[in-house]
Simulated assay, not measured.
Amino acid sequence: MSTSFASALNAARDAAGAQHYPQGALYVVATPIGNLSDITLRALHVLQIADTIACEDTRHTQQMLRAYGLDKSGGQLLAVHQHNEAERATQVIDLLRQGKRVAYVSDAGTPGVSDPGARLCAAVQAAGLRSIPLPGASSVTTAISVAGIVSPDAQGFLFAGFLPTKASERASVIDTLALEPRAVVLLEAPHRIEEVARALAVLGERPVTLAREISKQFEQITTHPASALHAWLKSDSQHSRGEFVVVIHPAAPQADADDPKERQILQWLLAELPMKTAVRLTAQITGGARNRIYDMALALKDAPHESGAGDEA
């Protein structure tokens, strides 16, 4: 039994032990994505008091528990993975109905996002029982936080998970994602990252951030134009190692600041609608950047004979 986290276990009991942890509930516990120190105090406490720990891989989870100094018998671990999740959900529900506390962990990060857990939670909820989330590490938000995405016209991001394995299907999905105005977050394995990089080259100069081995010793986070990703990966054999989060940055605003079609649509809408509404609809119709269209609307408003624009309501 490891003593490295002995003080953390004591801190977990002190900080989280006085809180209420209902019996007969499923605790969905986020675990570290690399660095074991990224566990939360509440997660440590729940893993201590759980009657059963359902997990994606029992051997992996047992190793993690022992690193924290948590002693759970093999009989307290229940394998729940993508191949048996629906079947094992029935077993978990039986335990919950007996008043047991069941914790669910995936191999790393937050369950139910790209790892198993969603079907289990759906079954528990359908049975009228409670699922309690314990927030923690997530490779998606970790990568986004340092990608340096600045896009006033495209707030938020789209999580697309893993791309299809077949080249034709992957290319089709990338063509669709190329039209997405928000940042797009993908996950990828080391043995496929070069194929994905080649496929993403169609995005040209659009910036893409690669984050590999997040929170581990050889973590590396770098941003390149999509067209240069494959060359960067091939420049060093180490660059293709580890699990990847791929962040496709939003497309740059269109350079055609005075597109005649866009200008005409805006003029028509300004003649009938408040300026903010006209700007929003023009951006939706043309795909143009809302800030730039708003500036164009202000200029047209100052030239009423040209635009026929009414005042904003």
Score class of each variant (00 low, 15 high):
3 T>N: 15
5 F>D: 12
6 A>Q: 13
7 S>N: 13
8 A>P: 00
10 N>E: 14
10 N>K: 14
11 A>T: 08
13 R>N: 01
14 D>N: 11
22 P>N: 08
23 Q>F: 11
31 T>F: 11
31 T>P: 08
31 T>I: 15
36 L>I: 14
43 A>R: 09
55 C>P: 02
55 C>E: 06
58 T>A: 05
66 R>G: 04
75 G>F: 01
75 G>S: 09
83 H>G: 02
84 N>H: 05
84 N>E: 01
95 L>I: 05
100 K>A: 15
102 V>L: 00
105 V>P: 00
106 S>E: 04
106 S>A: 12
106 S>W: 07
111 P>G: 01
117 G>W: 06
124 V>D: 07
125 Q>T: 15
126 A>N: 07
128 G>F: 01
131 S>H: 05
138 S>R: 06
138 S>H: 10
142 T>K: 13
145 S>Y: 13
146 V>I: 13
157 F>L: 06
158 L>C: 09
158 L>E: 00
161 G>W: 02
161 G>Q: 08
170 R>H: 12
171 A>R: 15
173 V>W: 12
174 I>D: 07
175 D>L: 08
176 T>Y: 10
188 E>W: 08
195 E>T: 14
196 V>F: 01
200 L>S: 11
210 L>A: 08
218 F>D: 05
219 E>K: 00
220 Q>A: 14
235 S>T: 03
236 D>V: 09
243 E>T: 06
244 F>C: 09
247 V>W: 13
249 H>C: 02
256 D>A: 13
257 A>S: 13
257 A>R: 15
257 A>K: 13
259 D>G: 08
265 I>P: 04
266 L>Q: 03
266 L>C: 04
273 L>E: 08
276 K>T: 12
289 A>C: 13
290 R>P: 00
294 Y>K: 13
296 M>N: 11
300 L>N: 04
302 D>G: 10
307 S>I: 02
309 A>N: 02
309 A>C: 09
311 D>P: 00
313 A>F: 13
